[in-house]
Structure formats: C-alpha cells, structure tokens
C-alpha cells in the first residue's frame, strides 16, 4: 500500500454535481439515518459518487461533505482509508487482478503480462481510456483462480488467451458476461465431479460405526457414574 492523496490539481475537475439518479439514491441513504447522524451515510454516498464518476475528485468530496454536514477532512479520512475508493481517474473498465498466492500459483503472473502488454503499466489507464488495471490482494475466489474483478464482477478461471479475448471484446464495446471461463458449474470440478462420487455414500451402505486405530482404551465406568 502506498500513501493515498487526492489526485494532482491538474487532474481535478472544476466542479461536481450529482446526477439525478445518484441524487435520488443518496436521498434514500439519507432517510435511513436521523438528521443529526447524516454522516453515517458517507460510505454509501461516496460509493454512489464513484459509481457516477469512476473516482473521487476534490470537488466531489467537498460536495459530499456539504451534503452530509461534515468537515471536508472527515470525508477525506474515509476516502483515503478505504483503498476501494479511487482517488485518481480510472478507465471505463477497472481491472482488479488478484495476485495473491492461489491465483499466482494458477497463473496470475501470465495475466499480468497480458495486462502490461495490452493496457500498460500497473495503475495506468490505456490510451483509449477503456482500461485501468491494478493488482489487489485476495478477492476470495481462490477456487476459481486465477481471476480478475472487472468493475463490479468476477471473471474467473482465466488464462492469458481468455483474458486477451475478454479485453478485445470489451474494447469493441461488447458486453462480456462475468463468471467462470472453463466448462464447469461455479466452483465444481471441470467436466464432472471428481469427489464424493461413491454411490454407497448416497444409499447409506457406507455408513456404520468406525474405530479409530489410536483411540484410548475404554475403561470401566466409575461407580458414581460421574467424571469429576
């Protein structure tokens, strides 16, 4: 992690206004809390702003602070605390590439090479403004490693070829449905089930008492029947 600051002045827009639908959604959040506790809505509203703009600019933070009656620094504290808030502009598609151990073992490094090749260095936005890629820690989809989160959704079981294809289709303006990209049901084994396939599991014939080889010898019960 590195120090998180507001984007440099040159990148900051002159102003920020809530779009009608974000304003309406913000109002919904505001009604959840008592007037004096409006500040409680700060995270959902910052998220709405990020949905609308893709990132949190200085004027946007000021607008949220004003909406919630908070000092600006309080909003900045939150925006800098949570790394999911982008403090700099990102492309239309934000790729969060998981680089943690399971994904790394399953080929995340190769995906990085594709990203570097097709988009550019980590954190940079592609020339067409479509893509930004960053490396993140575990997103909790290790069974479908390697994976990338593109905007809100998980794209799983990727290979360099599949990722290349996804990026090309997204760049062409297509919609690519999220999910896993090999033939399997969610995180079930590819093709067919490989475990729990013994029929006897399901007709009850596998059931029955078992004896552990290193269990302690059974002693005769105490006359009181108690153990203390």
């Amino acid at each position: 992690m590195s120090v998180r600051r507001l984007a440099p002045a040159a990148q900051q827009p002159a102003s920020f206004t809530f779009a009608d639908d974000s304003r309406a959604k913000a109002q919904w959040w505001l009604t959840k809390y008592p007037e004096a506790r409006r500040a409680s809505a700060v995270i959902p509203i910052l998220w709405l702003v990020q949905k609308q703009e893709g990132w949190l600019s200085k004027p946007a933070i000021e607008a949220v602070a004003e909406m919630l009656g908070m000092p600006q620094i309080r909003v900045l504290e939150i925006a800098t605390f949570y790394t999911m808030f982008n403090l700099e502009p990102v492309g239309k598609y934000l790729l969060q590439l998981c680089g943690t151990t399971p994904c790394m073992l399953r080929g995340a490094e190769d995906l990085k090479t594709i990203c570097k090749h097709m988009i550019g260095p980590k954190g940079a936005t592609s020339a067409d403004g479509n893509f930004t890629w960053i490396e993140v820690e575990c997103l909790g989809a290790c069974v479908n490693a390697p994976m990338i989160q593109i905007n809100d959704y998980f794209y799983e079981d990727l290979s360099p070829e599949i990722l290349e294809d996804i990026l090309k289709r997204l760049a062409a303006g297509e919609t690519v449905p999220p999910g896993n990209f090999v033939r399997r049901d969610t995180s079930a084994p590819e093709g067919h089930a490989l475990t729990l396939i013994d029929e006897r599991l399901y007709d009850g014939s596998r059931g029955g008492p078992i004896t552990l080889p290193n269990a302690p010898e059974k002693l005769p019960a105490n006359a009181d029947g108690g153990n203390g």
Binding site: V3, R4, R74, L76, E77
Partner: peptide, 8 residues
Amino acid sequence: PELGATGR
C-alpha cells in the same frame, strides 16, 4: 474540525 488522520 480541520485536522484529520488520512490513510491507514
């Protein structure tokens, strides 16, 4: 309320 702790 001008001072704050940013980042983590």
